[in-house]
Write a protein that binds this DNA or RNA. Structure first.
Lengths: 339, 339
DNA sequence: ACGGCATTTTGTAGCGCTACAATTTTGTAT
DNA sequence: ATACAAAATTGTAGCGCTACAAAATGCCGT
């Protein structure tokens, strides 16, 4: 028996080099910049790679080149599912050039976001996406290209920002109701930046068109209960209203309960528009007309901006609002003729 | 002016060693095995680390030790949101010992799962979690400890397996309805392993208790539409049924539509139980009694098993079913007295 | 055939860390 | 004090790759 143990050691660049009859440096070159290598050797190296089943060691590459081909994504909380679309969008762009996304959520604690970001930076990520409210100091020593996604406030001018256009979404909702012929609107708002922008956009367009508008719940909660309560108040104090725009689908669901409890029908008596185009909205049971954030597009744009910065193509920071899309379903219709 | 540029180079283990007046090896030791170092030096090193803001380079550690302190998680599709709970559970266990989770979803293609797993292995993950149906060959050359999560079939005996107990969940649903006094049950099933187990558990317990049971939709789809159609069929052909158990919340929602369309009320005329305890079920609008998978517990157990294997504590493969939990809400009640 | 230049290929020297054997220090028993 | 083992510390040699300068090769006109 042969005493030499076959050692299932992973092949290295040296094994490939030997097998292809070239130097290790040449193999490295083929991996990074195939164009600089003659056709003959390139093929030889590629064959050797395929034959040996060689895969570069990311750790070694990172250590030697100080680049990781990875992007860190900091989210505020796994429970906020919007990051799923963001992540999908990012991956759809990043997969092709071979970048990996590393996810970190921010556990409770003082400098939650900063800690998560620091952890990712310790792994030498080439770029950072902050999909959470960037607290003070988080964006300070930006050692790698950084983009804030889905947030708008507290972002210094030198940091890139890609966000859903919540103003635009609010305006879209208003336009839709306007076109249907509604003239007296209610809005269920809540606390938080996104809600404020949705409200502003909706309000702006409604006022511009000379419509009546009553806003409820401004600065309050954004749960189903809150939607229910605000909608009850609206319906009881402003019976002339024919359409309600809620700052999110959950509140819209609450509003639906309120509307039904008053013996009114959707969309016959009241049209209802939500926001987020959540699974709730898509449900056959609700068929809720809703504004879709297009967070997937945000993710794609984020990835593109980051790649540009990493590869040194783009100049300064980049800001962009992503257009949302209105998805019309069964809860909006032409208003009933009164009397 | 001083021509030397201050170079914001990250401090290395050498910088720490110099600052603490010890050798680099000692610093490394403090990082890995503080107990082996005298109190005096340990403190000196720790102070130096804090002072310099030193953070070990993951890449270098990986390269030198051939360990990464990271776990790869392969999911089948970002749209299947159950992985969110799984991930949360895993992180709650892995954060403390300093492990990172790397996520990879399996894009379309032939060997989808295998490619994703290979990608993670190329990054030298120390352990692998397959939260998807493990196709042929995926678990073959298991070079690192591997656990299959949330799946039950096609898993060879030598691979660890941590799964939701879908049989148990089905039985729980049956028990609940039994205790309420229901004697004639309907079940909305569908294709797929999870649905089959839920059905089997429900069926087993129902038969054991001598109840009437009609199953609809076996092998069919699992969407809201499918739930609606199957529930219609059930209600029309088996009017004696007083309770329906759906294989998931979405189908339960469809069933609710069907029940209402027949002029029946929930829970007065028909009790309804879903599965997954999704946000849908929690909604105030539905208040759906539902079985919770406890995927967070699956994630925690997965992480524990993996850590044990990685640290060489545990012996062979490990199999465990995680008990689900029934969340009773407003869609189940004592059946109405007939006639 | 030969200089001169561009292109292709290679050798050398790390990147920051850990493993492990070698060495020094400390503690204990005599 | 002295011998000896145990504990603490250090030096050396990589891990697998890339950067970069140096060397080799190819190509052109004359």
């Amino acid at each position: 028996m042969n005493p030499r143990i076959p050692q299932a050691r992973r092949p290295t660049i040296y094994d490939v080099a030997k097998s292809a009859g070239v130097s290790p440096s040449l193999v490295s070159l083929v991996l990074q910049n195939p164009d600089r290598v003659s056709d003959k050797r390139r093929e030889a190296v590629r064959n050797a790679i395929a034959e040996l089943g060689y895969r570069p060691s990311r750790a070694a590459t990172t250590l030697a080149s100080n680049r990781t081909k990875s992007i860190g994504l900091v989210i505020d909380d796994y429970r906020n599912l919007w990051f799923v679309d963001l992540l999908r969008g990012m991956e759809s762009v990043l997969t092709e050039p071979g970048f990996q996304v590393m996810l970190a959520d921010s556990r409770p604690g003082e400098n939650r976001i900063k800690d998560a970001a620091d952890g990712l930076l310790a792994m030498h990520v080439d770029g950072l996406v902050i999909a959470a409210e960037p607290g003070a100091g988080v964006l300070g020593g930006a050692v790698v290209p950084t983009v804030v996604a889905g947030w708008r406030h507290g972002v210094p001018a030198e940091v890139s920002l890609i966000t859903n256009d919540d103003d635009g979404g609010g305006a879209m909702a208003a336009d839709h109701l306007l076109r249907l012929g509604h003239r007296s609107l209610g809005h269920l708002s809540g606390s938080g930046g996104a809600a404020a922008h949705r409200r502003a956009g909706f309000q702006g367009r409604a006022r511009q068109a000379g419509m009546d508008l009553v806003v409820a719940g401004e600065g309050g909660g954004t749960s189903e209960e809150d939607g229910y309560a605000s909608a009850c108040w609206l319906l009881d104090h402003h019976p002339g209203i024919t359409a309600i725009f809620a700052a999110n689908d959950t509140m819209a669901l609450g509003a639906l309960g309120a509307i039904k409890s008053r013996g009114l029908a959707v969309p016959e008596d009241i049209s209802l528009v939500g926001y987020d185009n959540s699974s709730l909205a898509k449900s056959r049971f609700l068929e809720l007309t809703s504004v879709d954030n297009r967070s997937d597009l945000v993710g794609m744009e984020v990835a593109r901006v980051l790649l540009d910065r990493i590869q040194g193509h783009a100049p300064g920071p980049h800001r962009k609002l992503i257009d949302p899309a209105l998805v019309v379903r069964g809860t909006t219709a032409v208003p009933a003729v009164r009397h």
